[in-house]
Design a protein around this nucleic acid. Structure first.
Length: 598
RNA sequence: GCCCCAAUAGCUCAGGGGAUAGAGCGUUGGCCUCCGGAGCCAAAGACGGCAGUUCGAGUCUGCCUUGGGGCGCCA
């Protein structure tokens, strides 16, 4: 947001270094001054001092105290710079150079920028780079549970962030519509549930039939022969099996669509597991021809790739990838080899192909990408697996659709919304029924999504109802409430005939520290969006959204708006509008609705 | 056995090699006749261990401990 200032200062500092016989500092990193109530840019000279110290030691053999030297450089630099335009003062402290903004001018500028940009405030210029994000990957013929929710919600938020940051994003889904689990389901359906079709809660029922199949096979392992026989019929495209598969698969897909709609998530492109089977086998043949894969089928084995051996590694790292079963049926690896290539055929200009998939598949993706690399596919370098940790139940119980120990998503959304509804009814009984419903949905979904996005993706989330439905503290409802208060002030002002000026306000009064803090945070939105996009971390946005809400609430408590003197009121009304916009935009990046009332 | 991930306050989590390690929950104590108290202010309270790299390590590297995950025909 202060790129022009940073650039000007960088230029002057480079000149300063050249004139003083110091090494060129290169790209100078500016960070906010990390003390509450202080607003400006900060940089340090430790690296420069250390670099110079090494040069001096090479030349003269004399050691230099880096801390002292950094402070000397900072002092000289401060003197050299003087006080640049738009800055209030410059100071050198303990090796740091702190440049304090002239707060009134920057306040005016930040607030005017936000109001001008509106919904696009914080977005980056188009980069002309396309990124594919594959996420969600639900299995048909199984339940959709909270375990899947994390990857789905994270993937959606990441797409929103990447898009806002300036990338062209392809949202891809890859349903597991074939495989052993589907065959087991079909087997159980044919032998126990033929002709059945529930009218509601289809996804849940599909999951029940699958869990039952596993129970039956566990109780009577002899039945596995029937399942294997059915798999063989599928592989030969037996019309009866194919027809049943097509019909029941659609039931699941319809159920998923309902759930995505409820969550506010959409996809641009569907790849299906089943359509990757055949191309996958072709890739495997190619690997055999190239001498990368070893065909052990003649001796009853599978087709394997001994990756560590091919790389000449001493220790087991990539191990052995099974590329094709001994009976010629496809595995996930078979299909993922083909799919990785297919994505670049469909979108040749992809700069990155991201996979948002559960951490337990890390080795699988390393094997697939490494095998493609060995086979000479340069796209392999652009394929990145972003592993997310699983969601556990309290007591470290893993959710498993095979065992049926899952919290179903429909149930969870329903419960979250119902709980939100209860609170809304209590806090704001004057809302009409439709408003209440939409507010409860916004709050319930926000409460659900926020904890999944606010955590490092590599950390396990333990799901419990109490935390997920806790509307207090560091959670989405707190931010939504701050947004509602902004709306409330603006409504009140309007009711009193105090329209917000479209001209930028002067902010020509002493700013309150809470006011400066709020404006400071608002100004960080564009930079944090870029950072979140570069690092694939939704966490940066949840942190910022919460800090914005916290800063606004503190400001709200300390500074009257509507009742302030006319010139202050005009400026603060604009500030409230800007804060509201900043919160709405960051929440939008998280896939969370910012209500006007609640 | 090998590989990957994690460890920060009583609990749940932040922390961009750099200044004074921050929140929320919980606990204790306060708060405005004022724009919505789902709030605000304050107190107490923390970097698993040992080395190393570095001018400087919660952050990087190695080893150890503890917990989780993965490892030829599951997905």
């Amino acid at each position: 947001m202060f790129a022009a200032e940073e650039h000007a200062i960088t230029t002057k500092l480079s000149a300063f270094c050249a004139e003083n016989g110091l090494p060129d500092p290169g790209k100078i990193v500016f960070l906010p001054i990390p003390f509450a109530g202080h607003w400006g840019l900060s940089t340090s000279f430790f690296q420069l001092a250390a670099q110079n110290a090494r040069l001096v030691k090479e030349r003269t053999g004399q050691p230099t105290n880096v801390q002292q030297h950094a402070q000397e450089i900072a002092e000289k630099a401060a003197a050299y710079l003087g006080t640049p335009p738009s800055f209030a003062r410059v100071e050198a402290v303990r090796g740091y150079l702190n440049l304090y903004f002239e707060p009134n001018e920057f306040a005016r500028r930040v607030v005017a920028t936000v109001i001008e940009a509106g919904d696009s405030f914080g977005s980056g210029a188009p980069k002309g780079q396309r990124v594919m994000v594959e996420f969600s990957q639900p299995n048909t013929h199984k339940a959709f549970h909270v375990g899947h929710l994390r990857g789905t919600i994270f993937g959606d938020a990441l797409c929103r962030i990447l898009e806002f940051a300036g990338y062209d994003v392809v949202r891809a889904n890859y349903p597991g519509d074939i495989g052993l689990h589907v065959i087991k389901w079909l087997w159980n359906y044919m032998t126990r549930h033929a002709g059945e079709r529930p009218m509601k809660d289809i996804t849940q029922w599909m999951g029940d039939v699958y869990a039952e199949a596993n129970r039956r096979l566990e109780e009577n392992p002899d039945l596995e022969a029937e399942v294997r026989a059915l798999y063989a019929r599928w592989d030969q495209r037996d019309p009866e099996v194919v027809a049943l598969w097509e019909e029941t698969r659609q039931w699941s897909l319809d159920g998923f669509e309902d759930m995505y709609r409820a969550l506010g998530i959409h996809f641009d492109r569907y790849y299906f597991n089943s359509t990757a089977e055949h191309p996958g086998k072709q890739v495997v043949n190619e690997l055999i021809e190239k001498g990368i894969a070893i065909d052990e089928r003649p001796t009853g084995g599978a087709v394997i790739v001994k990756i560590d051996e091919l790389l000449g590694l001493k220790k087991d790292k990539y191990r052995v990838m099974v590329a094709l079963r001994s009976d010629n049926t496809a595995l996930y690896a078979t299909e993922d080899l083909a799919l990785a290539i297919q994505k670049f055929n469909d979108y040749p200009d992809l700069v990155k192909s991201l996979y948002i998939v559960d951490v337990r598949q890390s080795l699988h993706f390393q094997q697939v990408f490494k095998t493609l690399e060995i086979a000479g596919y340069s796209i392999a370098a652009k394929c990145i697996h972003i592993p997310y940790e699983i969601v556990n139940l309290p007591g470290n119980v893993v959710m498993s659709s095979r065992e049926g120990t899952v919290v179903l998503l429909e149930l969870l959304i329903g419960e979250a919304t119902a709980r939100a509804m209860e609170v809304v009814r209590e806090k704001n009984p004057n809302l009409d029924a439709a408003q209440m419903q939409s507010v409860a949905t916004a709050i319930g979904l926000g409460a659900l999504k926020f904890p999944m996005l606010a955590r490092e993706i590599s950390k396990v989330v333990t799901f419990d109802w109490e935390t997920a439905l806790d509307f207090n503290g560091q959670a989405a409802p707190y931010i939504q409430y701050a947004h509602v208060r902004c709306c409330s002030i603006l409504r009140k002002a309007q009711a009193e005939g105090l329209a917000i000026s479209r001209e930028p306000s002067a902010f020509d009064f002493p700013l309150h520290p809470t006011e400066i803090q709020l404006i400071d945070l608002i100004s960080r939105v564009p930079g944090d969006v870029q950072r979140a996009a570069e690092e694939y971390k939704t966490l940066h946005i949840t942190n910022l959204a919460f800090e914005l809400a916290s800063a606004f609430t503190t400001f709200y408590d300390a500074c009257p708006v509507v009742k302030a003197e006319a010139n202050i009121r005009a400026a603060r009304l604009q500030l409230v509008a800007a804060a509201k916009q900043a919160m709405a935009n960051t929440l939008a990046l998280l896939g969370i609705t910012a209500p006007e009332v609640m």
